[in-house]
């Protein structure tokens, strides 16, 4: 039996833009993945605790508020603190391309902006899982 890919879809930050996160959650489900959807306004602490308890293979975060340069690295920091080094972390939403390099240097594996076909996210996840 093939192992199911478990993805935590989280929406850090204080804004209410959840359409993108919901679109991604559905697309991943339709691709056969198990998506834990935790809803709006998640703190990095909540995201990391959920990732651990849910034994997520992937943490997928959606941000449209502009706070990505603070929140994404914070999630990476907390994951490292808990010794979680085998989770693939990706992001999406409204993020200026100028920030991509910085975020990748902090360990975010890929960023998917508006207009990215969901198929490419699915493919990226399948090909880049850290846990086999």
């Amino acid at each position: 039996m093939e192992r199911k890919i478990r993805v935590l879809v989280a929406k850090p930050g204080l804004d209410g833009h959840d359409r993108g996160a919901k679109v991604i959650a559905r697309a991943l489900r339709d691709a056969g993945m198990e998506v834990i959807y935790t809803g709006l306004r998640q703190t990095p602490e909540q995201i990391v605790t959920a990732a651990v308890q849910e034994d997520a293979d992937v943490v997928a975060m959606s941000i449209l508020s502009g706070a990505h340069n603070h929140l994404f690295p914070r999630v990476m920091e907390l994951l490292a603190e808990k010794g979680v080094d085998d989770v693939l972390v990706v992001g999406g939403g409204v993020i200026p391309e100028d920030d991509y390099d910085f975020l990748k240097s902090k360990g975010i594996a890929a960023i998917f902006g508006p207009g990215t076909p969901t198929g490419s996210t699915i493919e990226f996840i399948r090909n880049n899982l850290k846990r086999k």
């Binding site: 199911k4 959650a25 559905r26 991943l28 489900r29 339709d30 691709a31 056969g32 993945m33 198990e34 998506v35 834990i36 959807y37 935790t38 809803g39 998640q42 703190t43 602490e45 909540q46 605790t49 959920a50 849910e54």
Partner: peptide, 22 residues
């Protein structure tokens, strides 16, 4: 429940239990 079509699922129960998340 898992989706009978894709075998995937959206698990949303945790959403309502966020007060205890940490």
């Amino acid at each position: 429940p898992s989706s009978p079509f894709s075998g995937g699922a959206i698990l949303g129960d945790r959403l309502r239990m966020q007060d205890h998340a940490t």
